[in-house]
Amino acid sequence: MSYYRRANVAGGMYFFTVTIADRSADDLVRHIDRLRRVYRVVGEQRPFETVAICILPDHLHAIWSLPDGDADFASRWMLIKSGFSRGLPVRPPASASKLRKREKGIWQRRYWEHLTRDENDLARHIDYIHFNPVKHGLVARVQDWPHSSFHRYCRKGLLPPEWGGDVRDLSGNFGE
């Protein structure tokens, strides 16, 4: 069995990628209200600040700032993942391979986490999160993806609505 070392800095700021097992599914956006509700409830029970977030059909990216003296992001993700999964339509039985890896639910068992190092690292990850729907071809402009903290950044005047441009302009047509 593999042993994964995770960063463990109390009060740290972490970037996460959390993914569902079926990368062709759209569970996260199809059940977005459920995900938001569970995310909010867990945040009320085990506080953290969401610095940035973007929810795509099959994965999400988030940056969390944990409270001073608290480094336990793992239990928060466990509660979010299990709370979201409970009550969803029953899936066909998992393959033998997935069962061997203890992957029974809709989520991939593991997730990616990165402790942000400094302000530049944080800014790069915020940009990455906000641009992700364009990167995956879901929209041509960042502002067109509804499930992103990008809109909060715009309301606060931290980013202009046209941030990230329009990938349709990269085709050479330039609106002609």
Results as ranks from 00 to 15, higher is better:
I106T: 03
M1Q: 08
R168P: 00
L170R: 14
Q143C: 13
A94H: 06
D72Q: 02
R6M: 06
I106S: 05
Y3T: 10
Y14M: 10
H147W: 15
W64G: 11
D26N: 09
I55K: 05
P160C: 06
A21V: 02
K135E: 15
R5Q: 15
I80W: 07
I80Y: 09
R102T: 12
P93S: 08
R76W: 08
N8W: 12
V18Y: 02
F73T: 03
A71H: 08
L115I: 04
W145E: 14
R6Q: 12
L79Y: 13
R91N: 03
G105K: 06
E176Q: 09
I20W: 06
P89I: 05
P92L: 07
I32D: 11
C54I: 01
D58C: 11
F15G: 09
S148P: 06
P57E: 04
D33P: 00
L122C: 09
Y3V: 10
W163S: 12
L170D: 15
L88N: 02
W112I: 03
R6A: 02
C54H: 03
E103W: 04
Y153K: 14
G164W: 08
V90Q: 14
G164I: 00
F48C: 04
F48G: 00
A62L: 09
L138R: 06
I80M: 14
I53E: 12
S148A: 05
G83A: 10
S2L: 02
Y14A: 15
G87A: 05
L122Y: 05
Q143D: 11
D68G: 11
A96Q: 12
A140F: 11
P92A: 10
G105N: 10
R30T: 15
R117W: 01
K135N: 13
V167W: 13
W107G: 03
R168L: 13
T50R: 08
D27A: 12
P133T: 11
R34H: 07
R110Q: 14
P89T: 14
L115Y: 01
K104T: 15
L60R: 03
A7D: 11
I80R: 01
S171L: 09
V142Q: 08
R152F: 01
D22L: 00
L56A: 04
R36M: 09
A71G: 14
I80C: 07
A96D: 11
I80F: 07
L28P: 00
R30H: 01
R168C: 02
H130L: 10
H114M: 12
W107A: 02
W107Y: 04
F84G: 00
V42D: 08
